[in-house]
């Protein structure tokens, strides 16, 4: 079953420059992907590619000056764009939840951990205080926080980064959502802690049959915790497919460059990558947005490339996808 479906999503920001002229930044330029129940989709890309913005749009958290001129977002078949706040509030935090990047600034510093977990349930449901308390404790145990009864009384500042991230996972899952969006869930954590947190998240997603959208810039996280991957560049998905397939046979030149710039590949193949800056979102080039950085760019690239199917459920938005380099 398709949980989340994003279709040709455009997001732009309008602002007045110093010369008082309105400038429009085209941040998302036709993002399309689906998250099915029971699967973990990884969304990768560099800074400014629009990963977090996509998540915020899906959660219905965009506010002016951001606007959506085009595109659709459907959750469990229901269109979300234009949904009144009251209806969105019944989905967000209950059916579709989010784990954000900086755990220590995302918890209320003036409330104990247990109370935050209880509040999360009481706001979104009709659980009694006692029920909510019992469930909160069970949830802390499920995210493998030792001695959950005592930890219910802890203040956020008493937690380590890894513990705080576990609490956020507990908050996101306590209302039994169908879909969880994790935005850089382990960025900033140490490797040993990162591994533990990701294991916990993966096990819970598996046990509960959830769908998950994991946003990351870390190809290691995608390689080992996601089943499918979508690669973003300048507000577009340039390639998507099963993780093993995309890593073994990357079809888009950007994906190829991304994989070739991991230290392991550099050690094997030498320095092959030339990095570069993403295009100016205020003044996007015609056609393929990767054109300026692409080694294969040709006159054909002045026309925006459609997604080309190159294998089962594997596609890339490049005129030359699937052809030998």
């Amino acid at each position: 079953m398709t949980l989340l479906e994003v279709d040709d999503l455009h997001v732009e920001f309008a602002a007045r420059g110093l010369d008082n002229r309105v400038r429009v930044a085209s941040a998302l330029n036709g993002v399309s992907f689906k998250v099915e129940a029971g699967e973990v989709l990884g969304l990768v890309g560099e800074t400014g590619a629009g990963k977090s913005l996509t998540a915020l749009a899906a959660m219905g958290l965009l506010r002016p000056p951001a606007r959506i001129p085009r595109g659709a977002i459907r959750f469990e078949g229901r269109p979300l764009i234009g949904l009144p706040d009251s209806a969105m509030a019944r989905i967000r935090g209950r059916r579709m939840t989010m784990i954000v990047q900086s755990p220590l600034t995302s918890l209320d510093p003036l409330k104990r951990i247990g109370d935050q977990l209880i509040r999360m349930q009481r706001v979104h449901g009709s659980a009694s205080r006692a029920e909510a308390r019992a469930k909160a404790e069970a949830m802390l145990a499920a995210v493998r926080i030792p001695d959950p009864k005592r930890r219910m009384q802890a203040w956020p500042h008493e937690l380590s980064g890894g513990m705080a991230q576990r609490v956020l996972i507990a908050m996101a899952l306590v209302n039994d959502p169908a879909l969880v969006i994790a935005d850089e869930p382990t960025t900033g954590l140490d490797v040993t802690v990162q591994a533990q947190v990701l294991d916990t998240l993966r096990d819970l997603v598996r046990e509960r049959g959830l769908g998950a959208l994991v946003i990351t810039h870390d190809l290691g996280v995608v390689a080992h915790y996601c089943q499918r991957v979508a690669v973003m560049f300048a507000g577009r998905i340039v390639e998507d497919g099963p993780v093993r397939e995309v890593f073994a046979r990357p079809a888009h030149p950007y994906t190829q460059a991304l994989i070739a710039s991991t230290p392991g590949r550099i050690a094997q193949l030498g320095w092959t990558v030339t990095g570069g800056t993403p295009p100016d979102l205020y003044n996007l080039p015609e056609g393929c947005l990767y054109r300026d950085r692409c080694l294969r760019a040709a006159p054909a690239c002045l026309v925006a490339p459609p997604r080309r199917e190159i294998g089962p459920a594997h596609g890339a938005a490049c005129h030359f996808a699937g052809e030998a380099a």
């Binding site: 490797v191 040993t192 990162q194 591994a195 870390d218 190809l219 290691g220 996280v221 995608v222 390689a223 080992h224 993780v243 093993r244 890593f247 073994a248 994989i259 991991t262 392991g264």
Partner: peptide, 14 residues
């Protein structure tokens, strides 16, 4: 040994 084993190589084949 623990540190290296926790590292996620950016390659699903590993």
């Amino acid at each position: 040994q623990t540190l290296l084993s926790a590292h996620l190589p950016p390659d699903p084949a590993v």
